[in-house]
Design a protein around this nucleic acid. Sequence first.
DNA 1: TTGTATGCGTTATCAA
DNA 2: TTGATAACGCATACAA
Lengths: 372, 372
Amino acid sequence: MNMGFLGMCSVQQGSLDYRVCGVITSMAGQNKEKKRYTIRDIAEMAGVSRSTVSLALNDSDKINAKTKAKVMEIVERVGYRPSAIARSLVRQQAGVICVILPQIGHVVSDFYFSESLSGILDVVTAHGYHLVVEMATPEFKTGKKALALYRQRVMDGVLCVGNLTTDTYLTELAEAGCPVVLVNSVLGNLPAIIGANRQAAYRAVKHLAKLGHRRIGHIRGSEFVATAIHRTEGYLEAVRALGLEESDELLAQGYFDRESGYMATKWLLSHSRRPTAIYSVNDMMAIGAMDAIREAGLRIPEDIALFGGDDIVLAQYVTPKLSTIRQNMYLIGQLACERLFDILKDKHSEVYEEVELELVIRESCGANKSSR
Amino acid sequence: MNMGFLGMCSVQQGSLDYRVCGVITSMAGQNKEKKRYTIRDIAEMAGVSRSTVSLALNDSDKINAKTKAKVMEIVERVGYRPSAIARSLVRQQAGVICVILPQIGHVVSDFYFSESLSGILDVVTAHGYHLVVEMATPEFKTGKKALALYRQRVMDGVLCVGNLTTDTYLTELAEAGCPVVLVNSVLGNLPAIIGANRQAAYRAVKHLAKLGHRRIGHIRGSEFVATAIHRTEGYLEAVRALGLEESDELLAQGYFDRESGYMATKWLLSHSRRPTAIYSVNDMMAIGAMDAIREAGLRIPEDIALFGGDDIVLAQYVTPKLSTIRQNMYLIGQLACERLFDILKDKHSEVYEEVELELVIRESCGANKSSR
DNA sequence: TTGTATGCGTTATCAA
DNA sequence: TTGATAACGCATACAA
C-alpha cells in the first residue's frame, strides 16, 4: 500500500491511563437450549396425524376448518415452524442462492459491493429464498469449492459479482448443471447482466469532444475485467467515429488504483503533444491522475479536463469534483437475480443483457468547459 | 437527501446514437440438468452397501483400505458430494451462521460493512460453516423473521452487526435458545464484541486538551447507537477528569449525517463563547462541521480544531484531513464470530468484550497544533 | 383424514 | 474385523 498518497498520518495505540478495556463476563445464562418442536409433537398434542398437521400448515382445503384451527392454535402457541432442512430434503432444493463476491480488498468502489448485494438480497428475499455469501479467494477457485457447494445441494444457483474473464471455475460450475448468472461481468456465454459500458464510454468521450477536445488520453484497466475492456472499446469507437486523434501515445495502462493512475498520467504527459483531456476507466485512477497533473504544474479545469468512471463517493469530494459514469449496481444486482430465478423456474436459455448507465457531469473538472 | 451538499451535478441519460444496448440471447444451452449422484448410486457402483460408502467418505478405520480406496475412486470420478441437507437433518444442525446487517442505506461508513462481513466470513468458512445474510428491515424485526429462521433450523446462530439498543427482537431470539453475538453494539447482556469507544473518545479529548484546548465542543449521535453513546460518555469523562470546561452549550445533537453535523456546528458556533475544538462522534458529521465552520468565516486549523470518528475513507480526502478514531471492523467481526462458535460448542456464558481502538492523528486538521 | 413411502445420509445393531 | 441391515431425523405427497 502506498502510504505516500494518504498523507502524513500517525496512529496512536491506547495509553494506560484508562481502564475500560477488558473482558466482562455476566452469568445471566440465556440460551438454555429451548425445545424445538417437530411435526410429530404437534400431531400428538393435537391428537391428529402428522399429515393432518402438514395439511393445516400448508393451509390446504382438504382438511376441515375446525381441525385446521385446532392445529394452528397449537402451532402458534408453541411457536412451531417446520424444519427448512426436512422440507429441502423432500422438495429437492435448498432454497438458497449463493453470491460469490470478489475478495474484499479488491472491491474498490464503495457502492459496488453493498449496492449490488442489497439488490440481490431484496430479490432473493422476495422469492422466499436465503442468500449465502462466499468469497472468490484463490483457494475457492482452484479448490472448486463452488462446484462442491452445488453438489452438496447447499445452493440452487449462483450469482457472481464482478468476476474476472479468466474465472473458468464458473463455466465448469455451469456445465455441471448449476444455474449461474454473472453480475456486471462477462464470461463465455454465461447469462450476465452488465452495464452498457461501451455506450457510456462512447458518450463520455463524445461529451468531451463536444467541448472541443480532439486529443483525449485514456487510462485503461486490467485486461481481465470486462467492464474496463468495454469502456476502452467505447473510447476507441468514439475516437474513430468522431474523427478524434488516435494514437498509442494517448493510451495508457493502469490497474484501477490511485498509484497506477498517477503513473499512467505521468506517462501521458511525458509526450511532446500532451492530451487536453483524459478519460480514465475508473475514478480512483482519475484521482491519481489529478496528482500527476498538479505535480506537472498544470491546472485541471484549464489545462486538462478529466473524466472518470464508477461514481464512487470520493468523486464528489475531491477538488475539482469528478465527472464520471454511474453504474446502478443495485439495479444490476436485482436484474441478475431475477434472471437467475427465471432460469431456476424454466431452464431458460442464456441471456446477456446490458443496463444503461448514466453520465454524471460535475462542475469544474473541465468536462463542462467549452474552452477550445 | 440533501443534494445541496453534493454540489452541482447533472446526470445524463443515454442518447440514441449508439446501439449496443439491448438483449442478446444465445442458445448454447448449458444447464442441461446433470444427474446428481446419491450415496445409493455410489454404493451400487462400488458393489457395497450405503453404510460402507458412508464410512469411506468419513475416512473411518472400521473399513478396509482397499474397499475405501475403491469407493473413493468412484466418488472422485463422478464427483459425488454428500448432500448437506441430508447431513444437516441427521446431525441436527444447519451448519449455517446468519449475519443480520443494518439496512444498507444506513451503513454510512464505507468499511463498516465490508470489513466486518469479511472478518465474519473468514471465521465462518474456517469452521466449515456457511454464512447467510439477512437485513434488519422493519418487517424483519416486527415480523420476528429471525426467530422463524431459527425455528426453521435455517441457522444455528446469529451475528448482528451494529444493531440499535432498542432491537428487542434479538433478546427474544436469544431467549428462544438461539446463540446471538452482537458485532459492535450492546443490548441487555447479550454477548457482544465492541470497540472500546469510551476509552478512545477519552483519549481523543485528552489529545486535544494536551494541545491546549479547554473548551471542546462535542457532537453526539443518536441515543440508540451504543458506540455513539459510549463515545459521548468518554468525552464527558475526559472533560471532568481533565478539568475542561463543561457546559450544555458545548454539547450538540446530531444524527450521523453531514447535514446534522452542519446544523449542530452552527448551533455550537452560535454561542457567545465558541469552542476552540470540536469532537464529533463520527466523521460524516465532522465533515458537515467543516462546512459550518467555513461558512462562519473561521479557519479550521487556526480557529477551530476538529476530531472525528470511524476513519471512513473520506476522512483522508477532505481538506484538511480529519483526525479520527479507527475501528478495526475486520477484527471485531472475527472476534464476534469466534465467540459465537464458542457458544455453539459449549454453551458459554455471555461475554461482553471491548476491542482497543486506535486514534488516527492527521496533519492540519488542528488536532496537532499546540496553538494555545 | 390417515398410513406409508420418499428423499439422503448417519449410526447403532447385528451377522458373517 | 468387516460389512450389511434397519432405524432415525423431518416434512410431504399420495394412496387408502
